[in-house]
């Protein structure tokens, strides 16, 4: 097997690109895919302050490394979710990554800041663990990004993630979710701008990127993800991909190109007001996250106080719209 570019021995075959690559040209391929997505969707600029959500897994660490290599200013945010030893080992991978590259990491521990972890929240509220986890992560990331004055939050959602979510939303015709499944979600009051620069890379590619860059990451699956619906969707799509390489990309990018505009993005701005406990935007008196905290900790609303996660740094805010002046 020879590299498509230099004809040296290849280390990976990418059947959807009908290509094999050596280490150097595979890493270049990954950088080019990310650069292309950032440009195509006007995601971020090099003078933006960016916050990356890091978990210790392959996608978020690959994303941080790629953006760092491409010259973007990226800080990381790690959330201690309180999933027993899994959270401890995930944090060690993030710490090692940050120390090797002298990057800035913000750490928010759910137990310290809010008095609960995902394991206990799931048990006490009888919520599906992934639901309590996702809700907590979204709340903390949104707040940290807004409080810290970041121009965008980047997340490690890859092509497999997006194709699996689309597959699930189509199966159930979740029209509201379909309208929101965009690579860029613009900022709204209380919500930061969110972008997904890895959507042209599969999970196999982000894992391969980490191996070839020497990035150690959490390989073991989260112990609470057992039975996760998306895992089943991903396996189903990979069976299709094996038979017909390129199916996942055609499904997802075909949707973005030809179908997404048929689904209106829900505009709930008029219905949102501040949560009476934490001030985050919500369509109820108390936001879903605060309701989870109250249930998980057995406290009452009078005990809830806004928590400052990140203080805004003393640097000038970047100017201009997204996309302009991209280097």
């Amino acid at each position: 097997m020879k590299c498509r570019v230099c004809r040296e021995p290849a280390v990976i075959d990418l059947r959807r690109h009908n290509a094999n690559f050596c280490t150097d040209h595979f890493l270049r391929h990954c950088r080019q895919q990310v650069e292309r997505v950032i440009k195509d969707f006007d995601m971020v600029r090099t003078d933006h302050r960016i916050l990356v959500a890091v978990s210790g897994g392959k996608d978020s660490l690959a994303l941080w490394d790629l953006l760092n290599e491409l010259g973007y200013q990226v800080d990381g945010l790690y959330i201690g979710l309180g999933i027993d030893q899994y959270s401890d080992s995930s944090y060690r991978f993030v710490q090692e990554f940050v120390e090797q590259r002298s990057l800035h990491l913000i750490v928010v521990d759910l137990a310290e800041t809010h008095g609960f972890g995902v394991s206990t929240a799931s048990a006490t509220t009888r919520r599906v663990p992934c639901s309590a986890c996702g809700l907590s992560k979204r709340h903390v990331f949104d707040k940290a990004a807004v409080d810290g004055g970041y121009d965008a939050v980047v997340t490690g959602h890859n092509l497999d993630d997006e194709a699996a979510v689309l597959y699930g939303n189509v199966l159930r015709w979740q029209v509201g979710y379909l309208g929101r499944q965009r690579p860029v979600l613009e900022a709204r009051a209380g919500f930061p701008r969110k972008v997904k620069p890895l959507i042209r890379l599969t999970e196999r590619e982000t894992a391969a990127y980490c191996v070839l860059r020497g990035i150690e990451y959490q390989v073991e699956e989260c112990p609470m993800a057992d039975g996760n619906r998306h895992l089943g969707f991903k396996e189903a799509l990979n069976r299709l991909e094996e038979q017909s390489p390129g199916s996942k990309a055609e499904f997802y990018f075909g949707y973005l190109k030809r179908a997404i505009d048929r689904f209106e993005e829900p505009d709930d701005r008029d219905q949102l007001g501040p949560c009476s406990a934490c001030g985050a935007p919500t369509d109820a008196d108390v936001c879903a996250f605060c309701r989870l905290v109250l249930q998980a900790t057995g406290t009452s609303i009078s005990d809830r106080r806004p928590v400052a996660l990140v203080s805004k740094p003393d640097i000038p805010a970047s100017t201009g719209g997204p996309g302009s002046g991209h280097e």
């Binding site: 097997m1 280390v11 996608d59 391969a208 191996v211 020497g214 993800a225 996760n228 998306h230």
Partner: peptide, 25 residues
């Protein structure tokens, strides 16, 4: 420490890991 391509032939002195890449996320 690197990736082993699909056409590589494995022998007794090889030590390999097969690593799943799908995560629940």
């Amino acid at each position: 420490g690197t990736l082993v391509p699909g056409d590589a032939v494995l022998d007794d002195d090889d030590e390999i890991e097969i690593r799943p890449v799908i995560s629940g996320g």
